[in-house]
């Protein structure tokens, strides 16, 4: 570890010699900074197999890092973290960002009774994937700011900040590995709100490999064993559901539940 900048180690760890994973904060690296959470809807009609989309405008004018959450229209306490091809109450769903600064949630109902208004939320981060640094809308001269290495904190753009008290950071509330069986595993968080969360699945046939959820998998060496793994959050739990693989021996999930919230 270089001896410059601001570093904060975990309790009981000497900050001067701590490994990166033992640092709760270091100005060497950026942190995802939450800009806002926006709400959208998709009016799903009654044509089974048709593709319905809902659009919501991004509050910022460049492709940002984002995460999406989609409410189950039948079991409405459940909110699925949506990547692509999430399967909810017999409907497929996926989210993407359009070049015209809109987020799009696409839903394909595959059964009757899903012709409802589906609700979704998108966490928009300040951090961006592409192009030059941005400021939103201008550098504010208040609060606590820490620029990344090599940047002048007085002139650094918002996207060049390692930390800025204007925006929330993702901080980990719960993180662990769980061995699962039976197709469902539940983690209780009791936060009282819908937390941002991430889950990775260790592949049961290639046990050094992890897939981010949601994922459709074809994972045995002969491509015969296929299924779906995804998860949803409620205000008290996170529930991982998956198609049980034929060998059912090595299903392990690694998860992160953050303090930051979707609602």
């Amino acid at each position: 570890m270089s001896d410059y900048g601001i570093k904060v180690s975990k309790s009981g760890i000497d900050v001067k010699i701590a490994d990166p994973t033992d640092l709760t904060y270091s100005s060497k690296w950026s942190n995802f900074k939450i800009h806002s959470v926006i709400d959208g809807t998709v009016d799903v009609g009654g044509i089974i197999g048709n593709l319905y989309t809902g659009t919501v405008a991004s509050p910022i004018n460049y492709p940002p890092v984002f995460l999406a959450l989609l409410q189950d229209p039948v079991n409405t306490t459940r909110w699925y973290v949506a990547g692509g091809r999430t399967f909810i109450s017999s409907g497929y769903a996926g989210v993407y960002y359009m070049s015209n600064n809109n987020f799009v949630m696409a839903i394909q109902p595959l059964a009757p009774g899903l012709n409802k208004t589906w609700n979704f939320k998108i966490v928009v981060f300040v951090d961006k994937f592409t192009g030059t640094a941005e400021s939103l809308p201008a550098v504010d001269n208040y609060g606590m700011k820490i620029s990344k290495s090599g940047g002048d904190v007085k002139s650094a753009k918002d996207t060049e900040m390692s930390f800025f008290s204007k925006f929330s950071n993702l901080s980990i509330n719960l993180s662990d590995s769980v061995s699962a069986s039976g197709g469902t595993t539940t983690i209780t968080h009791n936060l009282g709100y819908l937390p941002i969360a991430m889950v990775f699945m260790r592949e049961p046939y290639a046990t050094t490999v992890y897939d981010p959820l949601p994922t459709w998998f074809v994972w045995d060496p002969n491509a015969q064993d296929a299924g779906l793994a995804q998860f949803y959050v409620t205000t008290t739990t996170m529930v991982i559901t998956y198609t049980v693989p034929a060998n059912n021996n090595n299903v392990t999930f690694k998860y992160l539940i953050f303090n930051e919230r979707f609602n």
């Binding site: 593709l51 492709p63 984002f66 995460l67 999406a68 990547g83 692509g84 091809r85 497929y92 769903a93 996926g94 989210v95 993407y96 960002y97 359009m98 070049s99 799009v104 696409a106 394909q108 994937f129 990775f200 592949e203 050094t208 490999v209 992890y210 897939d211 981010p212 949601p214 994922t215 459709w216």
Partner: peptide, 29 residues
């Protein structure tokens, strides 16, 4: 952003909605 016609955009990984194509990743140590 300019390859897929009406589906032009930025796609989170993993992504594989309903059009028989997919974008995915996997992690190792």
């Amino acid at each position: 952003s300019d390859n897929w016609g009406s589906f032009d955009g930025y796609y989170l990984v993993p992504f594989a909605v309903v059009w028989d194509w997919s974008v995915y990743s996997y992690l190792k140590i």
